[in-house]
Write a protein that binds this DNA or RNA. Structure first.
Lengths: 169, 169
DNA sequence: CCGGAAATGTCAACATGGCTGACGTACTTC
DNA sequence: GAAGTACGTCAGCCATGTTGACATTTCCGG
């Protein structure tokens, strides 16, 4: 196969390569969540609250069912953290107009501010890594990560082409 | 700055790009851990057990202190899962020879087999993503992930050059 | 050789955030 | 009008993290 001239055992290389990837995922996630976790702990919230705040901020007017599909947890688990967030006025629930059974979720200004603070560190971490790695590496990163994600969720990640104020058809 | 000719707002692009990265990390980790978690649940173990089995398998003869440094949890937390694993004979503890206070940890054959089964799915997931993305993308992935990891842990990730049977100095 | 520090273990109590099961209400849809 | 859907809630269980306190064994420096 390959690597004949270097005398390398390709199976070994592959195994080591895959293990490094496993560890990169573990360490990156561990370090990526450490700081927000610490900030949350100070105000009596946890990582679960962060996830809700993040995705509600990302998708204003999201319904409970949609949020459950993203988080892949039970409604009872979500309910607990959501109650905290509503009580503390980080999130508001509005009745849906199209379907009045729905509760549309939105961040309050206070929620927006918390979200910003929590994500700030994560954004900086990513920005730093992106800057150092360069555009080409970033493309590779995105491609590989997308391949790791379950197929059904890949559609969410259209290449980041912002809405260009061009001819609107 | 950049993107002048396309009329793109670079700040928006950056924000969207960073948010996508945050979500890639979240979804990739979520999907990456889902299957091992399900397998572990069947035998009454959890993700914490997996982490211990993984790193003990990766670093045979690792000491408790070293393992704690990798996992960044308290010794009490580790102790609980370690006790389970020793009782169920996935892991053995041997007294250190250099320093007899140490308990060197190792997988039993049963532990090796479990580790293999648990990681199999993860390795396949990575292998598939690597295969589809190509060598260049893999390099980019590694570079960016390394940039996300805390500086102190980066040294662990030497480029995967296996021990070539060359002139040993 | 003695005393402090280190490596490890253990007990106890607590918090977070998953889970299941059961049930209720309001609303939509057919 | 009946069935299904969106959402909420109560109750209890489990895994896994935390802190604090304390014990044992061993190593090492003065």
């Amino acid at each position: 196969m390959t690597d004949v001239k270097t005398g390398v055992n390709p199976l070994f290389l592959r195994e080591e390569e895959l293990r490094q990837a496993i560890e990169l995922l573990y360490f990156a996630y561990r370090d990526f969540t450490a700081e927000p976790d610490a900030m949350l702990a100070k105000i009596g919230l946890g990582r679960a609250h962060h996830r809700v705040i993040y995705f509600v901020g990302r998708h204003p007017q999201i319904t409970v069912t949609e949020l459950l599909a993203i988080l892949r947890i039970t409604k009872q688990s979500l309910s607990r953290v959501l109650q905290d967030l509503v009580r503390e006025e980080f999130v508001v629930q509005r009745q849906g107009t199209r379907d009045r059974r729905q509760r549309l979720l939105e961040l309050t200004p206070k929620g927006v501010e918390l979200e910003r603070q929590l994500s700030e560190n994560q954004r900086q971490r990513i920005a730093r890594a992106y800057r150092r790695a360069g555009a080409e590496a970033v493309e590779g990163f995105r491609t590989v990560m997308l391949g790791i994600v379950d197929e059904e969720d890949r559609a969410k990640f259209a290449p980041p082409k912002p809405p260009v104020p061009g001819p609107r058809r």
